Simulated assay, not measured.
Amino acid sequence: MPSRTRSLSLRIERWPLAVPFHITGHVIDAARLVSVTIDDGLHAGNGEASGVFYFGETPESIAAQIESVRASIEAGITRAQLLDALPPGGARNAIDAALWALESQQRAMPVWRVAGLPAPRPLLTTMTIGVDTPHAMAEAARILTHARALKVKLDGTAADAARLAAIREVRPDVPLAVDANQGWSRAHFDAMIPVLQQLDIGMLEQPFAIGADACLENIDCPIPLAADESFQDLGDLCAVARRYDIVNLKLDKCGGLTCALDLAARVREAGLSVMVGCMAGTSLAIAPAFLLGQQCDYVDLDAPIFLARDREAGVAYTCGLLHCPPQIWGHTGVTVSSR
């Protein structure tokens, strides 16, 4: 295929949430992200990334990283070369997604086929409930009648047990997972484990802060443990494998689908289960993660449901299943619409 001169465009966007979303130590009222397009004159590939706020990333820092390699991108950098040009994080994720979509357009085939993957199927995804009062969280769970799995954010305070019990009372029918977002002390962990067992909780995600989770190596936890913040890239795998049962891969953390597909295989080789999660974002961010989700044991890709408005081409959630129409990303003959 003859090479064409590329052009890169990027913009910082803000997509408000319908209501603010609370996790440990953080309130999210909008998805602030960087949207990129790589155009060869005939075809265009799109991507977006919000970055990882707990690693200090912002849309501005992501945009600056992308600008630092603009010349290489416009000169024709490949996805493999991108792995060396940018570190893991939002900048690499946004460009990686755009390169996948551009190649998909150029080759006139969907991204899953370019990647050598089977045709994607709808995925059962969890729906997340943010930290609030027990009554408000139970009401949120009750309203999510279409959800077939729920993940509950807890913040390490005394109300956590009541929050979880209130949710289980109104939703005895669904699997429940808990995400502590690094917010628990060892004493709170010890107090909550019997509660989690009593309420039939199927997963506990990231109870302790990054660097404070070595104690898990000496704890025989009866609840499967998932690493999120403690796992960014392959260098974290050895320690994580001693402490956790599941690894949560997020494209914004590991720097894109190209890297994530390899990481998923490495995580499995280490004997761990694989989960795909997401940061705040639109359906354009979910589309690449949806392909990774085809390889995962657990799927948590519900970010667009929290938006006041999604992109024109968007994912759909039906009876707990995530559907990702092809027009969102890659070869369809349609460029993904922006705000």
Rank of each mutant, 00 (worst) to 15 (best):
P2V: 09
T5W: 03
T5N: 07
E13V: 13
L17Y: 09
A18M: 02
P20F: 13
H22N: 14
H22S: 11
G25T: 00
I28H: 13
A30R: 04
L33G: 01
V36C: 04
D39Q: 07
G41C: 04
H43T: 05
G45Q: 03
N46F: 08
E48S: 11
G51P: 03
Y54N: 09
E60D: 10
E60T: 05
I62E: 01
Q65G: 07
Q65T: 05
S68I: 13
A75F: 09
G76E: 08
I77D: 02
R79V: 02
Q81R: 08
Q81V: 00
Q81D: 14
D84Y: 08
D84K: 09
P88C: 03
I95L: 11
D96V: 00
A97C: 13
L99S: 05
L99E: 00
A101M: 07
L102C: 07
S104Y: 10
A108P: 00
V114M: 01
G116S: 05
A119P: 11
R121P: 00
L123T: 09
T128S: 14
I129K: 03
V131D: 15
D132N: 11
A136H: 14
A141T: 04
R142V: 13
R142A: 15
R142P: 04
L144K: 07
T145A: 10
R148L: 05
L150G: 04
K151F: 02
K153E: 11
D155P: 05
A161N: 10
A165K: 14
R171C: 12
V174T: 11
A180I: 03
Q182K: 10
R186D: 15
A187C: 04
F189D: 07
Q197Y: 11
Q198L: 12
I201K: 08
M203W: 09
P207L: 09
I210R: 15
A212F: 14
D213C: 12
A214M: 12
A214L: 15
C215W: 15
I219N: 13
D220Y: 00
D220F: 12
I223N: 06
P224L: 05
A227C: 10
D228W: 03
S230C: 14
Q232H: 14
D233R: 03
L237E: 14
L237R: 08
N248E: 08
L257P: 12
L263H: 14
L263N: 10
A265N: 15
R266F: 12
V267N: 11
S273H: 08
V276W: 02
M279Q: 13
S283W: 06
S283L: 02
A285D: 07
A285W: 06
P288R: 06
P288K: 07
F290W: 11
F290V: 14
L292R: 13
Q294H: 06
D297K: 04
L301K: 06
A303P: 08
D310C: 03
Y317K: 07
Y317L: 15
T318W: 02
C319N: 09
H323V: 14
T332V: 07
T335G: 04
